[in-house]
């Protein structure tokens, strides 16, 4: 149990998450700009604008620089014949085990940005839970989907 799952997700996920971070911060920046304008127009207290500005900087540092790296470092998975083993989480580290016999179906999905980076998210459903591995390499996700769906044999009357 102590050794971590072997596989890592694609390194390109890092770039992708940073882009998400940039978009995130940019939207926040727009809102802050609007707020600053209103602060000047209606002479609201200046610390409102300052606070919002600080928030933008903090958000940028967190979501563009810190979190993607930590998240990538933590994300690991391993698919053996019997089990799917996942580990993720930045502050709360979650390690999840899904026995292959519990898997009901596997999906891969791909948004426009993910497609651009040739990445794909795989989601594994059991009768009660859905587990996602984000930003896998496209081919890797496809291979994984094939292998999981051929390994998964759910006993009908278990559910």
């Amino acid at each position: 149990m102590n050794n971590q799952p072997a596989q890592r997700i694609s390194k390109r996920a890092l770039t992708l998450w940073r882009i998400y971070g940039v978009i995130h911060s940019f939207i926040l920046l727009l809102i802050t700009t609007a707020l600053t304008v209103t602060v000047f127009l209606w002479e609201w207290p200046w610390w409102l604008a300052a606070g919002a500005g600080g928030l933008v900087v903090l958000d940028a540092v967190l979501f563009i620089w810190l979190i993607p790296g930590l998240r990538w470092k933590r994300w690991r998975y391993e698919v053996s014949e019997q089990n799917i083993d996942l580990q993720h989480g930045i502050f709360i580290i979650t390690r999840t085990l899904v026995p292959m016999v519990r898997v009901q179906h596997v999906d891969t999905e791909q948004g426009p940005l993910l497609r651009k980076f040739r990445l794909s998210t795989i989601s594994i459903s059991t009768a009660a839970t859905i587990h996602k591995i984000p930003a896998l390499d496209e081919d890797e996700a496809e291979r994984l989907r094939q292998s999981i769906s051929s390994l998964a044999r759910v006993a009908e009357d278990d559910v």
Binding site: M1, G89, F91, I92, I93, T94, R95, T96, L97, V98, R102, T126, A127, A128, T129, H131, D158
Partner: peptide, 16 residues
């Protein structure tokens, strides 16, 4: 055991 769909172990850095 055969009814349990998934099991997780959760841990914050402090708990670790």
């Amino acid at each position: 055991r055969f009814r349990i769909q998934a099991a997780s172990k959760k841990q914050t850095l402090l708990q670790k």
